[in-house]
Structure formats: structure tokens, C-alpha cells
Lab assay of single mutants.
Amino acid sequence: MIINNLKLIREKKKISQSELAALLEVSRQTINGIEKNKYNASLQLALKIAYYLNTPLEDIFQWQ
């Protein structure tokens, strides 16, 4: 199981879903879906999320 901390980290950094989506060149709905565990981010997208949030990938998506 993967624990998804994207919403928590994004909100801590005061970045909206729309802002993050624009940086990543995806839709806001994609970010929303990832945060609600409706969609799994591809490895490429997960790495981009970590880069733009300046946060280690394993802090955003944790295996349990």
C-alpha cells in the first residue's frame, strides 16, 4: 500500500492544485485524482512532483 502525502505537503508549501498542475503541465483534475488516490502517478510525474515541491519522493509517496 502507498501512503500519499501530496496534499499535506502541497498545502504546507502554500501551493494550490492549479499552480502545481500548471508547473507539471497536467490538469488540476489530475492532481486532485492523485491526492484522492483515484489515480496513480506515473514514475515520471511522481519525480516531477518531488522536484517542483523540493521534497524527496519517498516523503510524498511512502510504501507501507
Rank of each mutant, 00 (worst) to 15 (best):
A22C: 12
I34L: 09
L20W: 03
L47Q: 13
N54P: 02
R10V: 04
W63D: 04
L20E: 00
P56T: 05
I49T: 02
A41R: 02
A46N: 03
S18D: 13
A50H: 02
N54H: 10
E25A: 12
Q64C: 11
L47P: 00
Y39F: 14
L47M: 13
M1R: 10
K12P: 01
L8Y: 11
K12G: 12
Y51D: 07
G33C: 15
G33S: 14
E11S: 08
S16Q: 05
L6I: 06
R10P: 01
L24Y: 01
I3H: 08
R28G: 05
Q64S: 14
L53I: 04
I2P: 07
Q62T: 10
K12I: 10
T30R: 10
N5E: 03
I2W: 13
E11Y: 06
E58N: 12
N37V: 03
S16I: 04
Q62K: 11
P56M: 04
R28M: 12
L20D: 00
A46R: 11
E35S: 03
T55G: 03
S27V: 04
E35P: 02
M1T: 10
E19G: 10
R10F: 06
L6K: 01
Q17L: 11
A21K: 02
V26Q: 02
Q44Y: 12
E19I: 07
Y52W: 11
N40E: 11
S27A: 05
A41Q: 02
N32A: 15
L45R: 00
G33E: 14
N5I: 07
Q44F: 11
E58I: 09
N37Y: 07
K13F: 11
I34T: 02
P56F: 05
V26M: 04
T55Q: 05
A22L: 11
A22M: 12
K36L: 13
K48C: 08
I9K: 02
I49D: 00
E11T: 11
L24Q: 00
I49Y: 00
L8N: 13
A21D: 00
N4G: 04
T30P: 01
R10N: 01
E25G: 15
L6T: 02
S42E: 06
M1Y: 14
T55P: 01
S42V: 05
T30W: 11
Q17E: 04
I31E: 01
I9D: 01
I31Q: 00
I60S: 01
Q44H: 13
L6G: 02
E19Y: 10
S27P: 14
Y39C: 14
L6Q: 01
L20Y: 02
S18E: 13
Y39L: 15
K13E: 06
W63Q: 05
K7C: 09
L24D: 00
D59V: 09
L24S: 04
